[in-house]
């Protein structure tokens, strides 16, 4: 038996919106400690990783570990039937064939219930080793979304250069080229404002990445004020959006490699 309650449906809506473009169907692994999801996109270029801890839910019960295969488009459609402030409960019995999702209004005078069919999804999962990143950029997630949008007007690939001075995003295309530099601030405090950027660096590092994937990652911006971009030579770049007090979404993107 699985039962999980979130006080606001908007959080679950944002989580599903952040990954549904990259992953059409995914296995949700429920255990005593919480929910995990790992899925690659069809082209195996990006890996989405979601972790929601049990203590982030207002109620959480998982009698035995269970994997539920869910079509994210269907999940998203059902979640659109909830008001943002509705309480949402998801429930599945052992060996269930569907996931029950119910919404209760704040006044508790309206309760709706939907069932989404579960599916067997046979997908490869990968081992992500712990890595010592050479550089970590911590920046506003809104700023990240804006840079991705701006760069996409010019090119299809983006180069991220992290140095002690800051982080530079650049692109080029048939129409021309452009770059945006965010200077490193030592401390991120109120004086600097929430839009400031920090770059923790051991060694300068540079990666070229496909912009269309970053545009998908930027869909997680409503979940978190900040995003961290973790870079290491010759390995996928990791983008992390923390989900307040309960977990995170991480996206790993394979870099472009020299031919």
């Amino acid at each position: 038996m699985i039962e999980a309650v979130l006080p606001q449906a908007s959080l679950l809506k944002k989580i599903i919106e952040a990954i549904k473009e990259l992953v059409s169907e995914a296995n949700f692994d429920f255990s005593e400690t919480g929910i995990r999801l790992q899925a690659m996109d069809k082209s195996h270029i990006a890996l989405s990783f979601l972790h929601l801890r049990n203590d982030g839910f207002s109620e959480y019960r998982c009698d035995r570990s269970q994997t539920l295969g869910i079509n994210l488009e269907s999940f998203s459609k059902v979640l659109k039937c909830a008001a943002n402030d509705d309480q949402v409960q998801i429930k599945a019995t052992d060996k269930a064939e569907s996931l029950s999702i119910s919404f209760e209004s704040t006044a508790k005078d309206r309760v709706s219930e939907f069932n989404v069919k579960l599916m067997d999804i046979d997908i490869d999962s990968v081992d992500v080793p712990d890595m010592d990143y050479q550089a970590t950029v911590n920046m506003s997630s809104q700023e990240f979304a804006r840079i991705v949008r701006d760069m996409m007007t010019i090119g299809e690939a983006i180069t991220i250069d992290a140095t002690k001075q800051g982080v530079k995003f650049s692109t080029s295309g048939d129409a021309g080229e452009g770059n945006i530099l965010l200077r490193h601030r030592k401390t991120i405090d109120e004086e600097d404002g929430p839009s400031s950027t920090s770059v923790e660096i051991n060694e300068p590092v540079s990666h070229s990445l496909a912009l269309k994937f970053l545009a998908n990652f930027a869909k997680a911006a409503p979940l978190a004020d900040r995003v961290s971009i973790n870079l290491i030579e010759d390995a996928p770049v990791m983008f992390e959006f923390k989900i307040s007090d309960m977990g995170h979404i991480r996206f790993y993107l394979a870099p472009q490699i020299e031919e």
Binding site: L47, A157, P236, I257, E258
Partner: peptide
């Protein structure tokens, strides 16, 4: 310009 890498060429499939 480089060629697009794949996640499974960096991380092992378990």
């Amino acid at each position: 310009k480089g060629q697009q890498g794949r996640i499974d060429s960096f991380f092992k499939i378990s």
